[in-house]
Design a protein around this nucleic acid. Sequence first.
DNA 1: CTCACGATGTATCGAAGCGATACATCGGGC
DNA 2: GCCCGATGTATCGCTTCGATACATCGTGAG
Lengths: 217, 217
Amino acid sequence: MLELAVLGLLIEAPMHGYELRKQLITKLGAFRAAISYGSLYPTLRRLQTKGWITEASPDSAASAADIPVMTSRRGRVVYAITAEGKEHFGDLLAQAGPETFDDPAFGVHFAFFARTDQQTRLRILEGRRRKVEEHREGLREVLARAAERLDAYTLELQRHGFEAADREVRWLEELIATERSGGTPGRAQVHHGVDPDDRGPDRGKANPASETPERLE
Amino acid sequence: MLELAVLGLLIEAPMHGYELRKQLITKLGAFRAAISYGSLYPTLRRLQTKGWITEASPDSAASAADIPVMTSRRGRVVYAITAEGKEHFGDLLAQAGPETFDDPAFGVHFAFFARTDQQTRLRILEGRRRKVEEHREGLREVLARAAERLDAYTLELQRHGFEAADREVRWLEELIATERSGGTPGRAQVHHGVDPDDRGPDRGKANPASETPERLE
DNA sequence: CTCACGATGTATCGAAGCGATACATCGGGC
DNA sequence: GCCCGATGTATCGCTTCGATACATCGTGAG
C-alpha cells in the first residue's frame, strides 16, 4: 500500500524521507491520519532492493547553485524512481486489489487516478462500489434481524456505519456517472461546495487530471 | 484493541474462538470488516498469560474418566473471563486512548458503552469529537490553501474526507447532547436496552447491557 | 450407504504497519 | 550564549493481517 503511494509521489519529483512523509500525509490525509517512519523507511528499503527506486545524494551535484530547498551538508538521502519503478507503479495502479471496505488501498488508488486511464478508473470505482454495497447490505441485515439482541449503543454504531456506507455508495455513483460522461470531478459536478471563496478552475500548474496521463503504456 | 473487544464479549458468555470471531464481526462490523485468526488467537494467548481469561474444556468437566489426549479428537477450547479480566476490562473501557481519527479503538469503546457509566461515555465522545474536528480542520486547510497544487481527483478525495469528518462531528454532537440529557441513543426503541437508571456513580462495570444474567462473582 | 462438500473449529507464518524512541543538524528568538 | 522547534534518518517491539493448513461434523446428492 505504501509502495504505491511512495512510487506515485516520487514520479512527480525526487524527494527525501521527511518530505515524502509530509506529502504522503497531505495527499492521503483524507483517510489516513499518519504515516509512520517505522513503515516508510522499511518501504523505501524494500523498493530499493527491488530496484524500483534509487538513492541519490544532492551534495555531489550541489556546488554553488542552491536555491530554495534547504540543502545541508549532512547525509540527506534523496530517493528517485527508476524506469522499472514507473512501470511497476503503472501495474500496481491498474490492478484493483480484492480489498475489504476498510482497506485504505482504495484511497491510495483514488489519489493517483490522474495518472491512470478512464477504463481503469471505472473498474476500480465499480469494484469499490460493490464492496461498500456488500458491507452496507450486511449492516442492513444486522439492523433488521438482530435489533433486539443488541444494546442501544451497538445498534447506533451499526446505524451510523450503515449511513456512512450508504453515503459512500452514492458518492461513488456520482463519480462513476461523471467518469462515464468523460468529465473530471470537481466543483462543476459537486453540489455541496466546501470552500467559501470559490475561484475559477485553475489547473495546468500541476499535472492536469484528465488530459495527459503521463505514464501510460 | 482486540483485547478490549474479546474481554467485553466474554463477559456476556464464555465462548470458543470461532464463535468469538463471528460475534466480533457482527458487533464491530460497522467499522471493521474482518477479524483475522492471526490476531484473534495471539490475543487469546496473551490474555491467558496475563490471567484475564481462562481456558475451560466442556469435555473434561463432563465425564473425563480417561486422560483426554488431543491426538485423535481436537478439543474445542472454551474461553471464560476471570475476575481480574473483568477488572481489567473496566479499566480499559474507561480510559480513552489518545487515538488518531482513523483508529478503530473508538468504535470498540462505543460498542461497549452500555457497560460503562455516563461520565466515561461523555469523556470518550468528547475526546473523539476533538480528534475528528482536528482532522476536519486539517482537511479544510488543505482544501483552502493547496487547491491549486493538487489534481482534481486528490482534491475530490479530500473533499469527501472533509464531509465524512464533518458528518461524524455532527453525529457525535447529537450523541453528546442525548447523553447529557440522560437519554439513550437511537431512533429505534430497544427493549433489552440500557438500563435507564444507570445513574449509579460507580458500579459501571456491573451494569448489564442486556438480558445477560449477571456473572459478576 | 457413501462420500463429497460446506460449516465449524484450532492454529501458525511471514509481512506490513505503527508508536515510541534515539540521535543529529539547523535557524531563530530570548 | 543557549534552548527550542523544525528538519532529518533510522530502528525496535508489538499488533494485526491475509493466507494457509488441518481436523471434525452434519447433510444431502447419487
